[in-house]
Design a binder for these strands. Structure first.
Lengths: 156, 156
DNA sequence: CTCGATGCAAAATTTTTGCAGTCCC
DNA sequence: GGGACTGCAAAAATTTTGCATCGAG
């Protein structure tokens, strides 16, 4: 398993910018760093706040304009759990298809490998004459310990 | 397989309203009818338009206030495919856990049975100490015929 | 009659966009 | 120096909410 360190990852980001004729700006680098230093799932607003701690000139508009660049480069993944805003996270290793388990008590999102999904989606789509471009499995759940003991250990 | 006819379904709706101390209003009935007569997935705005053809006094606010009642009663299902607005549909038969295959060419949504999901979600959640409340699998795909022949037969 | 339900319009929320000014290459 | 990039604020787009009025039970 190849893990991802910030230096090689930042090089990938610079390369992605260069490959697409995009400029390397302080704001984009600050947003990249903020994303990479986030340990869990974050929202656009979280990212803005964290990026501003690194470069206080970063604006909300630039965060929203940079997020698609990060997701297209594969350095950040987008997760839509059906709320009216999206979550993002920075994968720490090469990951197969992922599923999310969402604890509706503590609102935490757990990423889980779900390699068999790959096969499953293909077979379902083929019957419809379609070719899979992506798929996602999301499981909503409640915390057993919260129900039993009144404490959700996942809550931070 | 038990299919669903509009009369028994509407009785279920009335019963659900009564059980929850909610009133049977013309607007709610019009919205119910509009949902039931829709043959495919629809948005809140679609539903407003169709409900107004039945009862022109129906307002947007009432549609948004009635949709949760319909979904809670199980008569309508909500489908969030990651757009900024939600889709809904009226299931025509008792359905096991469903997956959606979304054609990104024609934007159609295909519902597919995915009974094994039930088992899968349970096993993943159990490892995390969670109990599944719901799950969804969504497969995004492109139309093979559109790519090969330039025609997407799913487009209407 | 009473209180839940409704329509309207304003508000809320997240994301996008127009524009004038900035700074990367 | 030129054009891509940025910040700001206004705009978009969907959904929610406050309030006066209406109507189901």
């Amino acid at each position: 398993m190849t893990t991802v360190d910030i230096h090689s990852s930042k090089e990938n980001f610079r390369a992605h910018l260069a490959d697409n004729g995009l400029r390397v700006t302080n704001q984009r680098l600050a947003i990249f760093d903020a994303a990479f230093l986030s340990e869990d799932h974050f929202t656009a607003e979280d990212l803005l706040e964290r990026a501003r701690k690194i470069d206080h000139t970063v604006s909300r508009a630039t965060v929203y304009r940079t997020l698609p660049i990060l997701t297209e480069s594969g350095l950040v993944r987008e997760v839509d759990i059906g709320k009216d805003y999206k979550f993002y996270y920075t994968p720490r290793a090469e990951e197969p298809t992922q599923a999310q388990v969402i604890c509706t008590d503590c609102e935490r999102i757990f990423e889980t490998d779900a390699p068999f999904l790959e096969w499953y989606g293909q077979s379902v789509a083929k019957k419809l004459g379609l070719s899979v471009t992506s798929q996602r499995l999301q499981v909503s759940a409640t915390c057993d310990r919260l129900k039993n003991d009144g404490v959700c250990e996942n809550r931070r």
